[in-house]
Computed example of a mutant assay.
Amino acid sequence: MDQFIIKPLFGDGEIYWYTPTNVTFWMALTIISVVLLLVVTTRKRATIPSRSQSIAELTYGFIYKMVEDVTGKDGLKYFPYIMTLFLFVLFANFLGLVPMAFTTTSHIAVTATLAFAVFLAVTLLGFVKNGPAFLSLFWVSSAPLAIRPVLAIIEIISYFVRPVSHSIRLAGNMTAGHAVIKVFATFAAAVALSPLAILGVTAMYGLEVLVCFIQAYVFTILTCVYLKDALHPHH
């Protein structure tokens, strides 16, 4: 588990809030990667796009369609934030697969910050857009009247658990995947087991590439679902 230890970027010693660390370094690379994809590769806006511009346009269209399908037309004004969130998580996940890299999304502090930001934003938006009517989200009007209070308590608990599950799912999958890869890589040191271990590392690495995309997709689509609840609590 030493691959998940936060270390100062320069020298040793205690870590303070202003200390550059391996986390901040790879976060900076993540932000740079997002800027390169969305700004640098599309600055020419060519009619016949290059490969990099095509990737940026396909990503844009993919997330735009997701936001529109889940939240409706009302949610499109929040598309820039959701697009940025998706790309940040996606690049952070993929950069973590680079040998000797640090996977920032494996730390609950990072994923919890993203999840709680979404939770607070959609909750405030729900009250701003709907006022007290936002509380109807917790009142299941289609259920029999006798059990509605019980369902309301369950809905309230599940609502406040959202940022916890939202953050732990991403951090847990990233941590588990990288830990398994490290275990297989350790087995590769034994000559007798090295062919099987190398095959296992290759298979796990391929699976982790898929998981990196899926977890970014799940994190983003859950954000869209929470946004939909804030915009349309009666549905």
Results as ranks from 00 to 15, higher is better:
Met1Leu: 06
Gln3Asp: 08
Ile5Leu: 15
Ile5Arg: 15
Ile5Ser: 12
Pro8Glu: 11
Leu9Tyr: 10
Phe10Asp: 06
Ile15Lys: 05
Trp17Gly: 10
Trp17Met: 11
Trp17Lys: 14
Thr21Trp: 06
Asn22His: 07
Thr24Phe: 02
Thr24Ile: 07
Trp26Gly: 08
Trp26Val: 04
Met27Ile: 05
Leu29Trp: 13
Leu29Pro: 07
Leu29Phe: 14
Ile31Ala: 11
Ser33Gln: 08
Val35Lys: 05
Val35Arg: 05
Thr41Ile: 00
Thr42Lys: 07
Thr42Gly: 00
Lys44Thr: 05
Ala46Thr: 04
Ser50Lys: 15
Arg51Ala: 14
Ser52Cys: 07
Gln53Gly: 02
Gln53Ile: 08
Ser54Lys: 15
Ile55Asn: 05
Tyr60Asp: 11
Tyr60Thr: 07
Gly61Leu: 05
Gly61His: 03
Phe62Pro: 00
Phe62Asp: 00
Ile63His: 00
Tyr64Arg: 14
Tyr64Ile: 06
Glu68Trp: 15
Gly72Met: 06
Gly72Gln: 09
Lys73Phe: 13
Tyr81Ala: 10
Ile82Met: 08
Ile82Asn: 00
Ile82Tyr: 09
Met83Asn: 14
Leu97Glu: 15
Pro99Asn: 07
Met100Thr: 15
Ala101Leu: 02
Phe102Cys: 08
Thr103Gln: 08
Thr103Asp: 14
Thr104Phe: 00
Thr105Lys: 01
Ile108Asp: 00
Ala109Lys: 11
Thr111Tyr: 04
Ala112Leu: 15
Leu114Val: 10
Ala115Gly: 04
Phe116Thr: 12
Phe116His: 03
Phe119Lys: 00
Phe119Asp: 07
Leu120Val: 15
Leu120Lys: 02
Leu120Asp: 00
Ala121Trp: 13
Leu124Thr: 07
Leu124Gly: 15
Gly126Val: 09
Phe127Ala: 02
Val128Trp: 14
Val128Asn: 05
Val128Cys: 04
Lys129Ser: 07
Asn130Gln: 15
Asn130Ile: 05
Leu137Pro: 03
Leu137Phe: 01
Trp139Ala: 08
Ser141Leu: 09
Ser142Asn: 09
Ala143Cys: 06
Pro144Asn: 02
Ile147His: 01
Ile147Leu: 08
Arg148Lys: 13
Arg148Ala: 09
Val150Cys: 00
Leu151Ala: 04
Leu151His: 02
Leu151Gln: 10
Ile156Trp: 01
Ile157Leu: 07
Ser158Asp: 11
Val164Thr: 10
Val164Pro: 01
Ser165Arg: 14
His166Val: 04
Ile168Lys: 12
Arg169Gln: 13
Arg169Trp: 14
Arg169Met: 15
Leu170Ile: 14
Asn173Glu: 11
Thr175Lys: 11
Ala176Glu: 04
Gly177Ala: 03
His178Val: 03
Ile181Gly: 02
Lys182Thr: 11
Phe184Asp: 09
Phe184Glu: 13
Ala188Leu: 02
Ala190Asp: 15
Ala192His: 01
Ser194Met: 08
Pro195Leu: 13
Pro195Asn: 10
Pro195Trp: 09
Pro195Ile: 04
Gly200Trp: 02
Val201Thr: 12
Thr202Ser: 14
Tyr205Phe: 15
Leu207Asn: 09
Glu208Ser: 12
Glu208Thr: 06
Val209Gln: 13
Leu210Phe: 11
Leu210Cys: 10
Val211Pro: 01
Val211Trp: 13
Cys212Asn: 13
Cys212Thr: 01
Phe213Trp: 10
Gln215Asn: 07
Tyr217Glu: 02
Val218Thr: 07
Phe219Ala: 12
Thr220Ala: 09
Thr220Glu: 07
Thr220Tyr: 05
Ile221Trp: 04
Leu222Cys: 03
Leu231Ser: 03
His232Arg: 03
Pro233Arg: 13
